[in-house]
Write a protein that binds this DNA or RNA. Structure first.
Lengths: 370, 370
DNA sequence: CTGTTAGCGCCTTCAC
DNA sequence: GTGAAGGCGCTAACAG
């Protein structure tokens, strides 16, 4: 009997060929959709494939062709709504072009990021989208490794100094600046910066702060710079007491905001760089018995439907999450399909959604100048 | 010159063998971690591999062994925080056992679900975790297809009638019942059900409603049953006017809740089965000028950090999202690794997080009986 | 213990 | 146009 079944009802191309009474190559050509084959034989092959329930083995195909039609994605945390949104953009855009995605979370751990890169290299993905926790010179060996093996890499959400790659990011610095400018325009001069680069103790100087920032997450540093930009433009001196310190967890944000609220010359506005910073700040406000926006104004990053139904509705920065992912996938796929990498920063614009959490400070600013 | 480089600096096992001066099989054995090989040669091979920067080609390995160490996941929407959380559980649990995950979104579209199943079959994943939109008898061909090809399938979040598989779900019916009981215990009898099975017009009878439910998403039906259970126990007659109709989008929830609020005998409590139903309801409350919990009480599904900082803090049902995913992955991996499928429903318990959005109804219930 | 040999399922020259 | 034969990189029997 010809056509010995391989296993578990998975017919191979040879079996289809046998069933159709043609050579393997002919079957392969019609089923693979390449090369010429007469309409007649093509029909026979198709019928046989149909009958046997043939499905091409993508693994075998990848082995021969060298392309897997799979993209690798490395993010901090797939469970984080921000990355989930980005992931959706990536997924939609790549699916539209016939690619699937393998996702790995690193939880901001560089070792895990390296391991993830290796997994993707081993599984022969055609390209990698990376939201990296790496920043410095020494931290890019894994990126180099992928590149050296001919796997293109595109950065998303976070640029990485010291490696010259396409990166798709949002205008963090500008967004932060605009938000803080909005606060300043409302009359605020004591503006807290919640959730920056983690530090053990208050930075002695601006310089020290910036240095800490560049040793940590790229986005945090950018947002901090935007905050500083706005302060500088308004000639408001930088006060180290107004930046959050310690670990980036909601409880810590609550504690730090409480501290800023208890300052003799307390904060009258808060700029929060992440969702959990916002909720942490809100908690602190509540326990302090202070109300927003009457006593303190607030603007935060990462708009959500919740922010719109809060009391008061919150003024927030909306990031184009889906687009961020989609654009990254497109840039990457262009390269995968042969385009020359442009090696540039693709910056997407965020949007300040104005609602009702910003108002003038309660009393006229401390000392109105000279 | 021996050891002709394959391409882009990707040494093969043969090149490593040549470099080490041993046979291919010996190199394969040490690098693949199977079979015996003398410490001496092993060292030589390892050194050569190190030197060449060898990394095994997982694709080739999969072709030989038939296992890909990859799990497929099919969900409605990877961008949805609920599924993102589930995904994180899946990812963590499978990573811990050496498996990676390929995720596909269906957006509740059955055709996409079928296509996704085919992709996963073609890519030879070792198992599939599926949150299916399928319900009826005819909708399970794609599940059968995977099973027939020897790929185990585990259902997550949503059970599917007419197919006998392991399923990991939460206690939807019980959770809903407890929530509604809580409302009833506070004195409510006019309780709105927000976000049920989509219907074009009000169901004439309970029976019609239940029928609609069983034609739609499993979770929705279960939550509806829980609602009805609680009503029945309290001998509160079912009122079709108190269930939401139309498409499941936030705006529609807002409209429907507004309608229930405008009823002559208006609703005094709301039970919302999803996050967007909660925010939609909150919007309606605001525009109606009604306040929670003074005028209407509210309990919703899917707790989030936002719910805790709302005014008032919301009483919500917390689903064990991470555990849901992790458990599904574990059940699946057990099967992948040879265990016999138990083909049972694994039900995880949710938790009612009591905060401050439930209070007695504003005025004594309409007509206190006889 | 080690090396030789034969596949896994597909694609891809290359003669026919 | 079509079929035979070789190869992708690895595992797995099998002799030695």
């Amino acid at each position: 009997m010809p056509g010995e079944r391989s296993q578990a009802g998975r017919p191979t191309i040879s079996e289809v060929a046998a069933e159709a009474g043609v050579g393997r190559a002919t079957a392969a050509r019609t089923l693979g959709g390449y090369g010429y084959v007469s309409p007649e034989l093509r029909e026979r092959v198709l019928a046989a494939a149909e009958k046997l329930g043939y499905r091409a083995n993508a693994l075998a195909r990848s082995m021969s062709t060298g392309v897997s039609h799979t993209l690798g994605v490395i993010v901090a945390d797939i469970g984080n709504p921000f990355f989930a949104g980005v992931m959706r953009g990536i997924s939609d855009a790549s699916r539209a072009r016939g690619f699937d995605t393998l996702v790995l979370s690193t939880y901001e751990n560089l070792d895990d990021e390296v391991a993830a890169a290796n997994v993707l290299i081993d599984k022969r993905v055609d390209g990698v989208i990376l939201a990296s926790a790496a920043v410095g010179r020494g931290d890019v060996a894994h990126i180099r490794a992928a590149l050296d093996r001919g796997i293109p890499v595109v950065l998303v959400d976070r640029a990485v100094a010291s490696v010259d790659l396409d990166a798709v990011v949002i205008d963090n610095r500008d967004a932060a600046r605009r938000a803080v400018e909005t606060l300043i325009a409302a009359g605020h001069r004591r503006i807290g910066f919640v959730w920056g680069p983690p530090m053990a103790e208050p930075p002695a100087t601006r310089r020290a702060l910036l240095a800490a920032a560049s040793r940590n997450l790229w986005t945090d540093g950018e947002r901090l710079r935007g905050y500083l930009d706005a302060l500088d433009d308004a000639r408001i001196p930088f006060d180290p007491d107004l930046v959050m310190m310690g670990r980036k967890v909601e409880e810590q944000a609550t504690r730090e905001v409480a501290r800023m609220l208890a300052l003799p010359d307390r904060v009258t506005a808060l700029f929060c760089t992440e969702t959990d910073a916002v909720t942490g700040a809100l908690r602190a406000l509540r326990t302090s018995g202070l109300s927003c926006p009457r006593d303190v104004s607030l603007i935060g990053f990462d708009d959500s439907t919740w922010a719109a139904v809060m009391e008061p509705p919150l003024t927030m920065i909306e990031q184009p999450v889906h687009q961020l992912g989609a654009k990254a996938a497109e840039v990457l796929l262009d390269i995968v399909e042969g385009a020359e990498p442009r090696r540039e920063m693709h910056t997407l614009r965020s949007r300040l959604v104005t609602r009702s959490s910003v108002a003038p400070p309660p009393s006229p600013p401390p000392s109105p100048g000279a």
